[in-house]
């Protein structure tokens, strides 16, 4: 547990000292500023547009951080041989994987927190006060964090065996496919009954369903979500990510350095 927190802290330090991360944060400030300015200058733009565009910007930046940093997490350690000194200490490979994952989650958490603050400031200026429905915006940000955690687990798995470029490509493909899983399922169900349909459906259920985390339209209209949905989504992200991390550990246990 201690090794996980030490490696996690170091991974977090690596990310926040990276110019790309700082650039993404600056971009987040820029996007929030533009949205806020547009809201102030135009009567036609309401808080819903502000929430929608901010959540979209948060998703894009979050995916950028998860994929860009996640893809390099394991392979960079192997290529630069920093893993030698790390694993020559009392650190299990599972602790190494979990430490890396925790470090990147901290980075994503900081990113989400920072952007949530900007959104809250923009919303406060827009509606000049506090709307009780704003809690759903927080829930939407929490769901986004769960979505990014799941994507990071996929990226970490790819990073354990593929080159960084391939890991980026695979991760973006998983994100794209996972965002339309519901449509893919509907398409599979529409087919003729038989083995191909069963296989297509099984594949759809194996793929992550990122759409369950997307509640931006509810948030934009301040429509609260049931507590059950929060629990189910949390459990889904936790179990799925746990399974992917287990796979990553298995891959690394069989690797030699």
């Amino acid at each position: 547990m201690k090794a996980i927190s030490i490696i996690g802290g170091n991974t977090f330090k690596e990310a926040v000292r990276d110019r790309v991360f700082l650039g993404l944060l600056l971009f987040a400030v820029f996007v929030s500023g533009i949205t806020l300015l547009a809201g102030q200058m135009s009567f036609g733009i309401d808080s819903g547009v502000l929430i929608n565009s901010s959540l979209l910007a948060m998703t894009l930046i979050g995916v950028g951080v998860a994929v860009f940093f996640g893809a390099q997490l394991v392979l960079k350690e192997i290529e630069r041989r920093t893993i030698y000194t790390l694993l020559a200490h009392p650190v299990a490979r599972s602790e190494f994987v979990l430490g890396k994952y925790v470090g990147l989650l901290l980075t994503l958490g900081l990113n989400c927190f920072f952007m949530a603050l900007l959104l809250w400031a923009a919303l406060s200026l827009q509606i000049r006060g506090f709307h009780p429905g704003e809690w759903v915006v927080l829930t939407a940000i929490y769901f986004l964090f769960l979505e990014l955690s799941l994507l990071t687990a996929w990226t970490l798995l790819f990073s354990s065996f593929a080159t960084p470029v391939m890991a980026v490509v695979f991760s973006l493909a998983i994100f794209a496919v996972g965002s339309f899983t519901e449509d893919l399922r509907a398409l599979a169900r529409a087919g003729h009954a038989g083995l191909p349909r069963t296989l297509a459906l099984a594949t759809c259920y194996l793929l992550p369903d990122f759409s369950v985390f997307n509640i931006s339209s509810r948030a934009a209209h301040f429509i609260t979500v049931p507590a059950r949905m929060i629990w189910l989504n949390s459990a889904y992200a936790l179990l799925y990510s746990g399974f992917l991390l287990l796979m990553t550990i298995v891959v690394l246990e069989h690797r030699e350095f």
């Binding site: 030490i6 690596e14 990276d18 030698y84 000194t85 020559a88």
Partner: peptide
């Protein structure tokens, strides 16, 4: 353990690096 031609985390200072490994040990 000292590996051959060691390469360490470039974003750390010498003190931070040794502190990191001390904590791990």
């Amino acid at each position: 353990y000292l590996p051959e031609s060691p390469y360490f985390y470039q974003y750390l200072t010498c003190r931070e690096l040794v502190t990191f490994y001390a904590a791990l040990a």
